[in-house]
Structures are given as structure tokens and as C-alpha cells.
Write a protein that binds this DNA or RNA. Sequence first.
DNA 1: CTTGGCACTCGGAGATTGCGAGTGCCAAGG
DNA 2: CCTTGGCACTCGCAATCTCCGAGTGCCAAG
Lengths: 347, 347
Amino acid sequence: MSEDRRLLVLRAIVQDYVQTSEPVGSKALVDRHALGVSAATVRNDMAILEEEGLIHAPHTSSGRVPTDAGYRVFVDRLSAIKPLSAGERRAISQFLAGAVDLDDVVDRTVRLLASLTRQVAVVQYPSLTRSTVRHIELVPVGGSHVMVVLIVNTGRVEQRVVDTGRQLLTPEGERLVTAMRDRLNDVASGMPFAAAAAELRRLTEVSDESDRQPMAAVVTAFEEALVEQREERVVLAGQANLARAGADFSRSIGPILEALEEHVILLRLLGQLGDDPELVNVRIGHENPVSGLQSTSLVSVGYGSGGERLASLGVVGPTRMDYPVTMATVRAVARYVTQILDDNRTS
Amino acid sequence: MSEDRRLLVLRAIVQDYVQTSEPVGSKALVDRHALGVSAATVRNDMAILEEEGLIHAPHTSSGRVPTDAGYRVFVDRLSAIKPLSAGERRAISQFLAGAVDLDDVVDRTVRLLASLTRQVAVVQYPSLTRSTVRHIELVPVGGSHVMVVLIVNTGRVEQRVVDTGRQLLTPEGERLVTAMRDRLNDVASGMPFAAAAAELRRLTEVSDESDRQPMAAVVTAFEEALVEQREERVVLAGQANLARAGADFSRSIGPILEALEEHVILLRLLGQLGDDPELVNVRIGHENPVSGLQSTSLVSVGYGSGGERLASLGVVGPTRMDYPVTMATVRAVARYVTQILDDNRTS
DNA sequence: CTTGGCACTCGGAGATTGCGAGTGCCAAGG
DNA sequence: CCTTGGCACTCGCAATCTCCGAGTGCCAAG
């Protein structure tokens, strides 16, 4: 059946092009792959593939290169995620296991991902929205200010200084702080973050008249931490890999670096995931809404402690990338990170 | 006097080359600068400057380009740091004032520096070593583990989980935690970090037999935070600016990006400052020990709350940069950051 | 539908040329 | 002794040209 063979030809083209980074011609194809047909036949197939928009000839008389649509078909129908070797898995797990806290986990993850895939790695911090409150601490600083420290089940710590409008260095002030701390923790400990915020807000409204104002200030800080853009942070590594693969990018790498510095936009991209949290997401070339990244592909997947998807991680690389291997690596790293966060949660 | 004019010629060459990025010839020089002598005279001077190794002709018959040594003379003897306009100062101060916590201060600083100088900005986190302890908090998590949260006078917060080897969820355990917390804070609050570590270590040795082990675990965490490499963190921004100035780098920008990803090495560089904390440090081209950065210059300066130098910040750019403006910008940003940290300290 | 054959197309590498900015040197003038 | 105009010379660079061959599209035969 002709359709089947055409797809085999497409797969061969993708594989060869990924490996050699040069347009692949009919002759080279039949040499390197046992297709069982002649070069002329392959040429006919390639003509049809080109009509379908899956491949493209850079110049009138040169080999073919996959289009974004061609890669899409390859990823969806012509390849399987290639499992990692036991050694690779062990290396990942050991490297991540050495982390001392959340910052370190994220830092190690992004570096690991960059060096394994030789591409730009992107890791989003676990979101507060889906996390739960482990503990709230109040530390008086200066006369009437207090530092609110939020400790989250993922190991993340947020802090913020607020003015309570009350003198806190007196014995009475200390009692106030202690009372607030106890009340906050009684209410919020173990609660999902968003629910805790709502609950605490209600609490301020039924407070004694005297305590209402300091309490409201603290709760406001709490809410701010929830909505603030800093909540959504992203860390990159491996930008140097862009330079190594420089020839792959039509333009220079400048616009790509610029796009990667727009963390807000990156986060929006990472947030647009499919429904299945386990599924690896691939966005190829022009499928990408960000103009600077339309010569790149983004391979991403959600990760998160305890079955809930807290955030995403992935890599950005040339559309001409080894998708099966990259997808496998990204997925494996996400799984191990999830595992580490689970361990931390119970420790 | 001949020597004087030669230096004027050098200065003119540097200025023109920085502006046009093309080798500058004798004719162009006398046109653009009122040197009061003819092109031939300038040519004689240039020949001497070349003998002295301060300028260099890329090709037998082309204009001259400053060497690293030439830039060095320019920076040391031929230029003054150009003060920023009031508007620029106001912009810096307003942008930094919006920061909500230390992470945000650092993040804003590095982005600001990158966009002001259009170069790669580098900001080191304030070191723990020179900071003082504001508060130590212990939060029980899980059966026998406790999270040690260190709050530092710069606003920085470090956390770490340790196993106390004691069941803490009992009333007795809670008393133990409370007692330890009080004792830790009594001793360490307000102390410089290193001194506090030593003091606490001694404290564990005179503890009751029963409390010694949990206390030692906590103090160990404290000490670890002090020595750990994570203590020394550095944040970058503006890598895209490298691509914009791409033509300035002999090689591609790949090696530079790679060098910048070696945070440990960057930190060592930033650490090698002159004695005067107020002085802007410039390391030009090959003066730089890191091979990947020998086509760049590093302009750095220390910053720090309350007169003590806590850390450094700076920019990395092509040796062909506008030193007076860059130096002014780096210094101004460092001053405002210092100011912000001072404000935080007292708030 | 497949295959070998064949004329044709272009991109890219390499060689060639001409131009002009810029130099070094020299001899004359302050 | 320094400065200056003049002048021959040097190369890098860009533009032009040529040539080569991989690869194509199409056709007619199997």
C-alpha cells in the first residue's frame, strides 16, 4: 500500500535529517534504509509528501527537509518514545537525590536536563496555587513590622514583610504575635493554599476589633504571595547549547535568547499543557505562538508531587531534534523530580 | 609634548572605535577630532602606539584597533566615569524600590543592569558569611524531622530539614523544640553569621546530655548553610545582548555562554575585587583568567548593606564597550541596591 | 505501480579582478 | 627635532564568473 510506504519514507527522511542536518536526497535514502524500492520510486513518494506539505526542498534541486507538519506526523504517528537505559535512569536519580532543598532541586533539575538533552532546559517552580500550607511563621522585625514566612508542602518558602500598625516589641505585642501565629496555623495548616487564603480572610472579619488590623495586614501578605507574579518563576540552563546548534536556526540565535528571557511568556507556554499530566507535550516550530521561538520546538511535561500537577518542565531546541530521545529524557526527569518532591513532602 | 598628544590620539581611537566598531584610520581621526595636527603626524604617533602595544592593525593596511592594553590605559588614565543623569538615577531607584523581597531585589537588579547597559548582567546573592542572623525558626515536619529556617538581616531566608532523632509530635517534643528555638535565638540573634555558628557549636557542647543530639543536628544544618556552595549564588540576565553584539567576538558567542554557565567560576571572578569597595573594577580581555571570557571585559563592583561589602555585581560585555558609561551604570546600580538592602534591614 | 534513463537546474565553492582606504617612508619646511 | 604633504604600495573585501555535481522531474518501458 502506497500510503504506508510514503510514511516510511517520511520517517527515514526525518531520521536522516536529524542525524546529518543536511537535506536528504532519494539516492542517500535508499542507500541508508532498506526500503526495498528504487530511488525513482522514492522520488515519486517524495513529490507527494511535498504536495501534502510534510517535506520541503530548500532549493529547486536539492534534497528534502521535513516541515513542521512533517515533524508533527513523525512525532504523532511514526515514532515511539525511546526508553532510557538503566544507567541513565540511575544517573538522573542519583544526581537529583543530592539536593538539599527546593531551590537546589530545581537548580539541579534544570542543569541535568540541559546536559542530558544538550538543549535549553526550562523548569517552572512548583506553583503555590496547588500546594498546601505546612506552616506559617511570624517574625517581628523593627518596631511594628513583621515578617510573614510561609512554608509550603513542596519545601518552598516564601517571605514578606508587612506593617501591622502596632508596636510589637512590648510584652503585649509579643503576645499578639504569638496569638496570631497560633490562630493562623490552626486554621491554615495542611490546607490547599487558595482555600487557606479564603479561610483566613474570613477569619479576619470575625476577629476582635482590636486584632483586626494586624491580622488583616498579615492575611493580605499571604494573598499577595498567592497572586504575585513571582509565584510563577522559571529557571533556565544550557543557553550555550543554542550556539552549538546555531546552524539550525534560520536567523541568528538572538531572537531566541530574547524570547527565553521573557519569563512571563515562557510560563504561559509551559502552562498550556494537554489534559493528561503524564503525556509529553511537543510544540513544533510554527505551532508555537511566540514569534521568537518559531524556529524551535518545545518539549514539555507536567510534574508534581503526589499526583497533582504542580508545574511543568521541558526543553527548547531546534525543530531538527531527536524527538524520541528528548521526549524520553524530559519524561524521565519529570518523574524523578516528582518522586523527590514526594519524598520531601513526607520527610 | 609628544607623549601627551599620543595619549590623546589613543583616546580618540578608543572613542571612535567604540562608536563605529570599525578600525579607525589617521584621516578619519583628524576629521572627527580637533587634534590640531595633520594626518601624517597622527600616523607617526600611531606607529609608536603600535610599538608600545596599545593599538594594533588587523591587516597590513587598515585602520587601528585598541588592544587590551590600550583599553587598560584608556580606562586608567584617559577617561572619567561619566555620571548618570538625574532621570536615569530616578528610574533606577524607582524600579528597585518596587521589590517585595530579596529574591525580587536580585531579580530586578540583574534585569535592570542588563537593560541599562545592553550587556550581560551578573549579580551575586549577598553572602551569608558577612551577614548577621535576624531570627532562627524551627518547624517540626514529620515525626522526628525539623525544618530549620534562618532569616538573615539582608532579607535572605535559608531553610533545611534535619533529623533530630527525637519524636517531636509529643507534648514533650514540642517543649524541646520551643526550648531549642528560644536558646538559639537568645544566642545568635544579631550576631554575624560565622560568629553565631561558632557560638552555637559551643552551646551544644555544654548542653544537657539529653538535648545534645537534637541541638547538634540543628547546629550542623546551620553550619552547612554557611559553607554550602548554594550560599554563593549568582544570577544572570541579558544573554541575548551577546547575540546583538555578536560581531565583536572573534569566535562565536558559544564559548562565552558556556563560561557564563559556570557559576562557580563566575563567582570566583566576582570575588577578586580590589581593596576599595567603592571602586569599580574592570578586567579587560586577556586580563581575564577564564579562557572563554578573554574576548570580553568584566566591569564589577561590590555592594552591600551597611558599609560591609556583601557581594558583587557587574556586567560582561565586549572589550569594545563604552567603559565610562558602563562603569557609571554599574556603580549607580550597586549604590541603589545597597540602599534598598539597608532599608530592608531596618524595616 | 515501479524502474532505469536522461536532460536540466541551481546552489555553493573556488578563482579572479578591481577598488580604495590606509599605510610607511621620504624630503622639504618650520 | 618635529611636522607635513606627497607618493608608491599593500591588502582586505566585495563583486563577478565559472564550474561541478547532487538531486530533481519526467518519460517510456517493464
